[in-house]
Amino acid sequence: MLSSPPPPREASVAAAAKPTAATASAWAELLRLPALFTVPGDALAGAAAAGLRPGPRTLLAVGSSLCLYEAGMALNDWADRAEDAAERPHRPIPSGRIRPAAALAAAGALTAAGLALAARAGRQGLAVAAPLAATVWAYDLALKHTPAGPAAMAAARGLDLLLGAAATGGTTGAALPSAALLATHTLAVTAVSREETRGGSPLPPLAALATTTLLTGLVTRPDAPRTAADRAVPNTPGPSDARTRSAAATALGALYAATAARPYFHAALNPSPPLVQRAVGGGIRATIPLQAALAVRAGATGAALLVTALAPLGRRFAKKVSIT
């Protein structure tokens, strides 16, 4: 009996590449890759709020934040695998593309990596990263579906900003106002996200819309108090520099409002799952201009520009992988 000829080498290579590409796509979906672009701005805004220039330890804080954020994404899908099987069977775990044990192992490894990077930045960084990691795990495993869920998520985002301040070498006290503003935004987004699979009441998107309006006013108001950067640097910028910063903060605040407010408004008019999901996505993307506005308010124009540049990258990746 004649044996069939072996397949061409090109076909074998292509067949081997397909599972690899599918696995990479599944992990990108599990980890919500586009949302990663909302993370570096936390550390940069935190360093700016402490009146410090970003440095190598700020980069360690960014790396720690990225690892802990992705640990939370993997752990979230592991904890919600039964719920997703009923409501979102296309997700990587219920669809069988990623094993639950692999997602849990990834969450543990990423948490360890995040804490190790924070430790490299110094004891101050680790002192903030440890409660941040604990908050992430507590949210995913215990608090997510309780009334404390949005507050826990808000606390995690605020701690992430403080991590940037602490790891860079500053005091977390100076960064608390910026952390509070970012946490308030996260609280509003998380409250809306609790209804993204089933839809529901218009109250959460209305509250998020009001919160966005309030935060926009706070980051764009012309009579902002003297920043931490002004107090830390002996040669405080003159009126011309202050006007430039104020104009940049106003522009970034307007971008923040434009990104978040419209989808919130639509979800309030019709709180159906597609519109609520769109509102959550808008709220997540709006994190970037808010971080940039906080950075420029603290005098870190360069850091604000760097954070703003992440927005189009996030939008580009969001076309391929869902951000929520």
Rank of each mutant, 00 (worst) to 15 (best):
T197V: 12
A113P: 05
R157Y: 11
Q277D: 14
T250V: 01
A74L: 06
A155R: 03
E195S: 15
G169K: 05
P94E: 13
A165T: 10
L2V: 15
A133Y: 14
S240Q: 14
P177G: 08
A224K: 05
A292E: 08
L290G: 12
A267S: 12
R285Q: 05
P92M: 10
K144Q: 08
G302L: 01
T186C: 10
A293F: 05
P6S: 15
M153H: 03
S178K: 08
T58W: 01
A79R: 09
G46C: 09
G114I: 07
K144R: 13
L117M: 13
L30N: 10
A148M: 10
A101I: 00
T184F: 08
A82L: 07
A311V: 03
P92R: 05
L36Q: 12
P273N: 05
T301D: 13
A303T: 11
P271N: 07
H266G: 14
R81C: 12
S4C: 09
A106V: 03
L66Y: 06
A118E: 04
D77C: 13
D160E: 15
W137Q: 12
M73N: 12
L60W: 11
I284D: 01
P147A: 09
P89V: 04
T135P: 06
R278H: 14
A109R: 06
N270L: 13
R297Q: 03
L2G: 14
A156C: 15
T168N: 02
L313G: 04
G253A: 02
G108I: 06
L132T: 01
A28E: 03
R231C: 12
Y264D: 14
T168F: 00
P225A: 10
G281H: 02
T172S: 08
T301F: 10
T211S: 09
E83G: 08
S201G: 07
S4I: 13
A109C: 06
L159T: 01
L141E: 09
G72C: 04
P19M: 09
T236G: 14
A179M: 05
G114S: 10
S322T: 04
S95I: 05
T236P: 06
L162G: 11
G253N: 02
A119Y: 00
G253L: 00
L209I: 01
T213K: 00
N76P: 08
R194H: 07
R97F: 10
D160I: 10
L306P: 02
A133W: 13
A17C: 11
P34W: 13
V192R: 13
T236N: 11
R99W: 02
G170F: 08
A35D: 07
K18F: 15
L162I: 07
S272F: 01
V136C: 11
L44H: 03
R57N: 09
A79T: 07
A28R: 01
E10C: 02
L209K: 05
L115T: 08
R99C: 02
P274F: 12
L115W: 08
Q277L: 07
E83L: 13
R245V: 02
A101C: 01
R32F: 02
A311I: 01
R9D: 15
P56H: 05
K18N: 10
I284A: 03
L126M: 03
L163T: 09
G199Y: 11
I93S: 13
A257D: 06
L209C: 04
G200I: 12
A35E: 06
L182D: 14
G170S: 13
A148R: 03
T23M: 06
K320F: 07
H185T: 14
I323L: 08
L206S: 15
